[in-house]
């Protein structure tokens, strides 16, 4: 049940058109998001396991905290 739901992974994806570089995501999800020198996010596209609950929670906070709603969580079947 819970196990099946937590299999797979996610990536935090940014819409570069929407992003205005507020930098809230890097504060809310410092493990997932780094900022380039202009303040725009650099997000690793390597999927993170959904079982990594702290990472998932920080990703959700980043999605909720984005002033431009430029972030979304994309689920992928395999966590590498």
């Amino acid at each position: 049940m819970g196990m099946r739901r937590r299999s797979g992974g996610f990536v935090l994806a940014v819409n570069p058109i929407q992003c205005d570089g507020f930098g809230h995501c890097a504060e809310l999800a410092p493990d997932l998001v780094h900022l380039d020198e202009w303040g725009y996010p650099i997000i690793d596209k390597t999927p993170v396991a959904l079982s990594n609950l702290s990472a998932l929670e920080s990703a959700r906070l980043a999605v909720r905290g984005c002033p431009r709603q430029a972030l979304r969580i994309e689920r992928v079947s395999e966590a590498s």
Binding site: G21, G23, L28, H34, E37, G39
Partner: peptide, 19 residues
């Protein structure tokens, strides 16, 4: 637009170049 890098929150230390 972006006003440069934030110093990040108290939640985390400054990011290392290599994660």
């Amino acid at each position: 637009r972006a006003a440069g890098r934030t110093a990040l929150s108290p939640l985390s230390p400054a990011p290392a170049p290599e994660p």
